[in-house]
Amino acid sequence: MELARLLTEVADNAAERGECAGDKPLVAPDALDAAPEPRRVRADAVCGLAGLRFPGTQAQARAGKKETVQDGDGPTWSCEVIDHAIYAVTQEPRLLAGIRSSPGFTEQPRTAGLQVSGFDPTHVVADCAGGTPTYFSMEVEQGCTTALEKPGTAGPRELFDNFVDIVGERFGCTAH
């Protein structure tokens, strides 16, 4: 909690000095959720989501790989399939404002049928659920990169489209 209060104060001070502070300063939370424990990846529900493809070969998926899912009531969801991929999605307005105003943020190829903008094809923002900006991110790690050499392994673009399609439903993002 002390670190959360310190980081909140640092962020408020930086925003003030940069003349980009909002109407109200940020406030540290009263409590923090416990970090999730790694668990075994289920082949039928990667990151706890039916239909989300494993970011690697089926042999790797059956080999007892671990995942850590950050899933709460808030506007942010993330999952790390350890040594394979990190997925994140958020509708947090302050994060989205910063992302959209960053240099290099431009229109990107459609993702899972959605019109998107972002930094590259796997870090994008779509307008979802009645115009709610939603950021989707996927980082591919060594285990997935190694698997790309094997036949039948989905490539990063296919994995990202699958991720946006499956997780997007949860956040009100569906292709029109």
Rank of each mutant, 00 (worst) to 15 (best):
E2V: 09
A4G: 08
L6P: 02
L6I: 04
L6M: 10
T8L: 02
E9V: 05
E9D: 14
V10Y: 13
V10D: 11
A11L: 12
N13A: 13
A15C: 04
A15D: 14
E16F: 10
G22M: 08
D23G: 13
D23W: 11
K24D: 11
A28V: 09
P29W: 10
D30H: 06
A31F: 14
A31H: 14
L32A: 13
D33M: 10
P36L: 03
E37H: 13
P38N: 05
R39V: 09
R39P: 00
R39F: 00
R40Q: 14
R40I: 15
A43T: 13
A45Q: 05
V46F: 09
V46S: 02
V46E: 01
C47Q: 05
C47E: 02
C47S: 08
G48Y: 04
L49A: 13
A50M: 02
G51K: 09
R53P: 01
R53Y: 03
F54R: 01
F54V: 00
P55Y: 04
G56S: 10
T57K: 03
T57A: 06
Q58E: 15
Q58L: 14
A59F: 07
Q60N: 12
A61P: 01
A63L: 11
K65Q: 15
K65G: 09
K65M: 10
T68Y: 01
Q70T: 13
D71L: 03
G72Q: 09
T76Q: 09
S78I: 10
S78T: 14
S78N: 12
C79T: 04
E80C: 09
E80S: 13
E80Q: 12
H84M: 10
A85N: 07
A85K: 08
A88W: 05
T90N: 07
E92M: 08
R94H: 12
R94G: 08
L95Y: 11
L96R: 04
I99F: 15
I99P: 01
R100M: 13
S101D: 10
S101V: 06
S102F: 06
G104M: 04
T106W: 00
Q108I: 02
P109R: 10
P109K: 08
R110N: 07
T111K: 08
T111C: 14
T111A: 15
A112H: 01
A112T: 02
Q115C: 00
Q115Y: 01
V116D: 06
S117Q: 15
G118K: 00
F119H: 02
D120V: 06
P121E: 02
H123A: 12
H123R: 14
V124L: 07
V124A: 06
V125F: 06
V125M: 04
D127T: 09
C128R: 05
A129I: 04
A129C: 04
T132V: 15
T134G: 02
Y135K: 00
F136G: 03
S137V: 11
S137W: 12
E139C: 00
E139V: 15
V140E: 06
G143Q: 08
G143W: 06
G143Y: 06
T146D: 15
A147E: 00
E149A: 14
E149Y: 07
E149V: 09
E149N: 13
K150P: 01
P151K: 03
P151W: 07
P151A: 02
P156N: 04
D161H: 05
D161C: 05
F163P: 06
D165K: 15
D165H: 13
V167T: 15
G168T: 03
E169W: 03
G172L: 06
A175F: 01
